[in-house]
Amino acid sequence: MIEVRRAGVADAAELARLRGVMLADMDGAAPEPGRWSEIAATTLRERLADPLDSLAAFVVDRNAPPGGLAACAIGVIERSLGGPENPSGDVGYVFNVATDRDHRRRGCSRACMVAMLGWYRQRGVVRVELRASRDGEPLYRALGFAPTHPVTMRLVLPAPL
């Protein structure tokens, strides 16, 4: 059985590293470590330290070699205006699911996602969204996710001077 636990502050650097693993899978090339990963680790340390924060991460520890993480799922609860299908307006958004290559096909990501979905249920979240990689899509479908068809658009604003 795979043991999943809620991540804590001490896991921040490993969670940032696993974000790089996920980005490599999504983009086809590993991002260079640097300022982005330092900022991600700092953000994770800050947010994981606050038990009332709307961010949670669930992880599977690496057994061999000891230390580090094998897999994670990280998500947030975003609050917007409610509507008929979601009166509270709370939406779960899973933005990082990753498993190191040497731990894939063992159920680690599934275990992390099941824990994440349980966390959302405990908080009354009825709608959860994510962006799936081609490799991750079968897992998400098996968990009940369905494709949506709205147009997704993005604007990248210049950084402040």
Rank of each mutant, 00 (worst) to 15 (best):
9 V>M: 08
10 A>D: 01
11 D>V: 04
11 D>M: 06
12 A>D: 01
14 E>H: 10
14 E>K: 04
17 R>Y: 05
17 R>C: 01
22 M>A: 10
22 M>Y: 11
22 M>F: 12
24 A>S: 14
24 A>N: 08
25 D>G: 15
27 D>I: 14
27 D>C: 15
28 G>V: 13
29 A>E: 12
31 P>Y: 12
32 E>T: 15
32 E>M: 12
32 E>S: 15
33 P>V: 09
34 G>W: 14
34 G>T: 08
36 W>H: 14
41 A>M: 02
41 A>V: 02
42 T>P: 08
43 T>H: 12
44 L>M: 09
52 L>S: 15
52 L>M: 12
52 L>F: 10
53 D>L: 03
54 S>M: 11
58 F>T: 04
59 V>K: 02
61 D>N: 13
62 R>N: 03
65 P>A: 12
66 P>Y: 06
72 C>A: 13
72 C>G: 05
73 A>F: 03
73 A>T: 00
75 G>I: 02
88 S>C: 07
89 G>K: 00
92 G>T: 01
92 G>N: 02
98 A>Y: 07
100 D>A: 15
101 R>E: 13
102 D>I: 15
103 H>Q: 09
104 R>Q: 03
104 R>W: 03
105 R>W: 05
108 C>L: 01
109 S>H: 03
111 A>V: 04
111 A>D: 04
117 L>E: 00
121 R>F: 15
122 Q>R: 11
126 V>L: 08
127 R>I: 08
128 V>C: 07
128 V>I: 11
131 R>N: 14
132 A>Y: 11
132 A>Q: 07
133 S>L: 03
134 R>M: 10
137 E>D: 12
138 P>Q: 09
140 Y>M: 05
140 Y>S: 02
143 L>T: 12
145 F>V: 03
145 F>P: 08
153 M>R: 04
153 M>W: 07
